[in-house]
Amino acid sequence: MLEEKLKEAIIGELQRQAADRPQSLKVQGSDAAKGSEELTVNGRIDLGALAMVIAGSVAGGP
């Protein structure tokens, strides 16, 4: 259960970042990644934002 929440949070944040900066970040396979163990990401990731989303997911936040 926790692993699934973490995957969803990470994928959601990476998709959000890619939508905000499509020239800097591309995420492939995100639709299938929720049921698998692989995701292809190419570009720059805002680690601070990603860490906040992961922390929120672990803490039970939205």
Rank of each mutant, 00 (worst) to 15 (best):
M1A: 15
L2Y: 06
L2R: 15
K5D: 15
L6R: 01
L6E: 05
L6W: 03
L6D: 09
E8F: 12
A9Y: 02
A9F: 06
I10V: 08
I11L: 02
G12C: 09
G12A: 06
L14C: 09
L14S: 12
Q15L: 15
Q15A: 14
R16T: 07
Q17M: 00
A18G: 09
A19E: 06
R21H: 11
P22E: 06
P22Q: 02
Q23K: 04
S24V: 03
S24I: 07
L25H: 10
K26P: 04
K26H: 09
V27H: 05
Q28K: 13
D31H: 09
A33R: 00
A33N: 09
K34E: 10
K34H: 15
G35I: 03
S36A: 02
E38L: 13
L39T: 03
T40L: 14
V41L: 00
N42S: 10
G43F: 00
I45Y: 04
I45T: 07
G48E: 07
G48P: 00
L50V: 02
A51P: 10
M52K: 10
V53C: 12
I54D: 01
I54E: 08
I54A: 07
A55Y: 12
G56P: 13
V58L: 10
V58G: 12
G60F: 13
G61D: 11
P62Y: 15
P62K: 15
